[in-house]
Design a protein around this nucleic acid. Structure first.
Lengths: 339, 339
DNA sequence: TTGAAAGCGTTACCAA
DNA sequence: TTGGTAACGCTTTCAA
């Protein structure tokens, strides 16, 4: 009765052979036409017939078969783990994706949370990507990079606070963030500086270098005091309760969220900000501007995201070079009212 | 001089034939052993020799070749667009991934931002996924689902506020959020309720149903007033400036972030919260608890995430059924101090 | 300008 | 218990 228009009825998937048959040509010709192969001249009527046949059948080429034949893929694999989830990260991801798409790569994310380093590397290698870009939050052992290289990956690139043996590295040197924050506090006359260290496990990778950067910037001129803190109110209240015993006049709070948490607890304890204690966060979140006092922060920028796609492309085309390192991160303090 | 230990030297990628040669057996035997094929009995010494050869060569099977041969893949494709980026979404994603991994599927995310609906569907179809789960933020036309079905996808599932023709639907009915917020405000005696509508384009998909839910809950008993707002301070300040002209005694602010933005602007204008105007957000962010007054919110939960993986599995195994619908979202108001 | 055929890495059937 | 072989869908010589 009612004819359902879009009921593909479980039919077999159309192949280039079906297109060839319908167009009355050979499979070779179909390939030539659909790939716009310039090395061979096909008559216009034939081209049209092939195109129409493909459209009529709803033919879509089979990427696996293609790359099997070609001997290589144009897939760039991006394992994901504990997403840092900031808008910085999203923008970065999106720009990397569109940059690589422009160069005709297919970017694919692969959720690798819960896999150990070796299993994960094997799973990635099964997909035979041309390149793998591994965020710092995803475990990668030197053995993993070896597996990937053997499986034909032209480039293994790590992305994060620190490099991994045998892989290229896009570094986001988090020390700069700590350095920047402390330098800012020093300029404003503070000399006894706490540095919040989140107790959440995934964050140590970022927190440690930030602390190192802070220490480096202080270098003799100021005291640096690490302050463990969990991402909840009790922890912040407890820290605020013993604040005066710590004898600090400033705190770099890892990021804006921890800063907001701590600043609120300090204020609730009767400690004035910035009078008694200056507070600086990082990420320059919009929400920080809504607090009173407005939160000072460290703003991070990633340089040259398009050139990053070009870098990946270069590594894929000329593999086997020495591992390269590039530092992408730049940081600057944004002074508001809390410091 | 210094012998680099992990320099795979651009050698050819080892195949099952190489493993067979090294182990002194046939390719078939290699396949039997490495896949633990129960239908055929292989002697233990042979098993060991094969395993050792594979390990020595660093052999990793080629997923594309395998699924080409098998005629189907176990890939679940998850296109990504404008990531909603809340922790709710991340947790959901991660649980879906591990649930599907447990069922031996490979979950792959494919960044589709900037592609139009038809191009995107074609790009997904090239990968020949067994199933595609399309978030509401990614465009999908009925034609797209047809292309995917023809390419062999057993299940096309949409994930978001509303269904798409021809596809199964995992619905997160955002009306519940608006309903819940307004019901809460009604209970607290408010009758003239503003509803913040973010002007950011991607959010309309969520904002509209929330407004609809709000209207539904108010149904005669209260006035509902949509309030366009951009995600910046000027916009909030402007809205606050004309607040008293609006004659509202409450506002449901779309989510906690917009709520914080607006609440701050209201307070800066001298409007008391909750005295003069009650404010309710959504998402129940931790940061909302740091404000004064603490922000009331609507907490959302996704039911049954593991069973969702099972659902995908069922649809893959028994395709071609009528499109199914499931509503995943539940919402409840969390009363704090701002309402 | 077009076609025939080989081969990419796998697995499943059938024979030995 | 093992091995030979064909086939999956595609591209690319080589030949016509």
């Amino acid at each position: 009765m009612s004819q359902l228009p879009e009921q593909p009825a479980e039919g077999p998937v159309p192949t280039s052979a079906d297109v060839a048959r319908l167009a009355g040509v050979s499979r070779a010709t179909v390939s030539y036409v659909l790939n716009n192969n310039a090395a061979v001249r096909i008559s216009d009527p034939t081209r049209r017939r092939v195109r129409e046949a493909a459209a009529e059948l709803g033919y879509v080429p089979h990427a696996a078969a293609r790359s099997l034949r070609a001997g290589h893929s144009r897939m760039v694999l991006l394992p994901t783990g504990n997403f840092p989830s900031g808008q910085l990260h999203h923008r970065f991801l999106h720009e990397l994706e569109s940059g690589l798409r422009r160069l005709d790569y297919t970017v694919v994310q692969y959720g690798s949370l819960g896999l150990d380093a070796d299993d994960a590397a094997r799973a990635w290698a099964e997909l035979r990507p041309a390149a793998v870009i591994v965020p710092g939050s995803v475990p990668l052992a030197p053995r993993g990079t070896a597996v990937l290289r053997r499986s034909g990956a032209k480039a293994v690139i790590t992305l994060g606070p620190r490099p991994v043996a045998g892989a290229h590295a896009l570094i986001m040197d988090q020390r700069k963030v700590g350095d920047c924050a402390v330098r800012h506090l020093l300029e404003r006359g503070r000399r006894r500086i706490g540095v919040v260290m989140p107790e959440e496990p995934g964050l140590a990778l970022f927190a440690e270098p930030r602390l190192a950067g802070a220490r480096q910037a202080a270098a003799g001129t100021a005291r640096i005091e690490p302050l463990p803190l969990r991402h909840d109110e009790e922890s912040a209240t407890a820290l605020a309760a013993r604040w005066r015993l710590l004898g600090l006049d400033a705190v770099f709070a890892y990021d804006d969220v921890y800063a907001m948490l701590l600043m609120r607890a300090l204020q609730d304890t009767g400690i004035t900000v910035p009078g008694e204690t200056a507070v600086v966060g990082a990420d320059d979140l919009m929400l920080g501007r809504l607090l009173r006092p407005r939160l000072s922060s460290v703003r991070m920028e990633l340089d040259t995201v398009q050139s990053l796609a070009d870098l990946v492309d270069r590594l894929v085309r000329h593999p086997g070079r020495e591992p390269e390192r590039h530092d992408l991160l730049s940081a600057r303090a944004v002074h508001r009212e809390s410091s």
